[in-house]
C-alpha cells in the first residue's frame, strides 16, 4: 500500500511494463516518473528521489477470514468479477526467478521467501520460515523489531511487523512489548492498546529484494549451540542477531 500524494499533487500509479532485477517498476500517469517498489523511491523522471510513502494498513488473508473479521467490508469488483483464477501458480512453485533471474548474493537461496524492509535507510531481510510464532531482532539503530507469521500458514500470509525502542520478549509463550508490558494477540494480529508501532515491509523472494538492495543486513537466528548464550536474555527461546553483508 502506497500513498499517492507527492510534491503537492495526487498521482495515479500503473505498471510500467518493465522490470529492474525482475522486480516491478511502476510509473505514474501524471509525470511518467519511474518508481521502484523494492527501492522505495522514484528512480527516474520528474519526481526522481521522492520516497515512496508506504502505508502499513494492508494485510493478506483468505477471504473467509477477512469477511468474518470485517463483515461490512467492500470488495473490489472488476467487470462484474470479484475473483479470478490463479495465474502465477507456476512461478511460486519454481526455484527459478522470473525470467530465470538468480540472486547474485548467495547468503540466501534465490527463491528463499523473505520478509524485507527499510528502516532509517538501511535494508533488512529475514527468512519467513524463521518467523513462525514470532521472532524479535535488534536493529542497527538500537530499536527492536517483532515479526510474526502464523505457524504452518500459507506463503501468501502477510508477515506482521512492529517496532519498539523498549524491545520484545517471550513470556510463557506470549510475546510482550517490554515498555508497556502489552501482549501480542495472534488472533487480532496486534498488540494490546496498539503499544508497538506497526511497520511496513515486503513478503517477497530473496533474489528480488537483494538485487535491488545489495547492502541488505540479513537478520539471522542464533544457533542454539552458540557458546555463552544467556537463556534469560532470550526468554528461553532462540535469540537473534544481525549478520552484516560480508
Amino acid at each position: 500500500m502506497y500513498g499517492r500524494d507527492y510534491q503537492g499533487r495526487t498521482i495515479n500509479f500503473e505498471a510500467s511494463g518493465g522490470l529492474v532485477h525482475a522486480s516491478l517498476i511502476m510509473q505514474d500517469q501524471e509525470t511518467d516518473t519511474y518508481w521502484s517498489i523494492m527501492e522505495g523511491k522514484a528512480v527516474a523522471g520528474e519526481l526522481k528521489g521522492s520516497e515512496l510513502v508506504e502505508l502499513p494498513y494492508g494485510e493478506k488473508m483468505q477471504w473467509r477470514h477477512w469477511k468474518k473479521k470485517h463483515p461490512d467490508t467492500l470488495v473490489l469488483s472488476v467487470d462484474g468479477r470479484e475473483d479470478a483464477s490463479q495465474s502465477y501458480a507456476w512461478y511460486y512453485g519454481s526455484p527459478e526467478g522470473f525470467n530465470y533471474v538468480r540472486a547474485t548474493d548467495d547468503r540466501l537461496e534465490t527463491k528463499e521467501p523473505v520478509f524485507a524492509f527499510h528502516r532509517n535507510d538501511i535494508a533488512y531481510a529475514t527468512r519467513q520460515k524463521d518467523l513462525e510464532n514470532g521472532q524479535s531482532f535488534e536493529l542497527e539503530d538500537g530499536a527492536s523489531i517483532f515479526l510474526y507469521r502464523k505457524q504452518g500458514g500459507s506463503k501468501f500470509q502477510s508477515t506482521l511487523a512492529f517496532v519498539s525502542e523498549n524491545g520484545f520478549e517471550q513470556r510463557d509463550g506470549e510475546w510482550i512489548e517490554k515498555g508497556s508490558g502489552a501482549g501480542f494477540d495472534p488472533a487480532t494480529g496486534d498488540f494490546a492498546d496498539a503499544s508497538a508501532e506497526r511497520l511496513g515491509g515486503f513478503d517477497t523472494f530473496w533474489y528480488t529484494w537483494s538485487l535491488s538492495n545489495p547492502e541488505t543486513r540479513v537478520l539471522e537466528l542464533e544457533l542454539a549451540t552458540e557458546p555463552r548464550r544467556k537463556p534469560e536474555q532470550h526468554g528461553g527461546t532462540k535469540g537473534a542477531k544481525l549478520t552484516p553483508r560480508t
Binding site: Y57, W63, R64, W66, L74, A84, S85
Partner: peptide, 22 residues
Amino acid sequence: APSSWVLGVVIEGQPRAYSLTL
C-alpha cells in the same frame, strides 16, 4: 471463493478487500 486470498485494508475505519488474482 472462501479460500481465495485477498489484500484487506482498513483506512479511516472502512474495510476494503482486493482479490489477489484481480
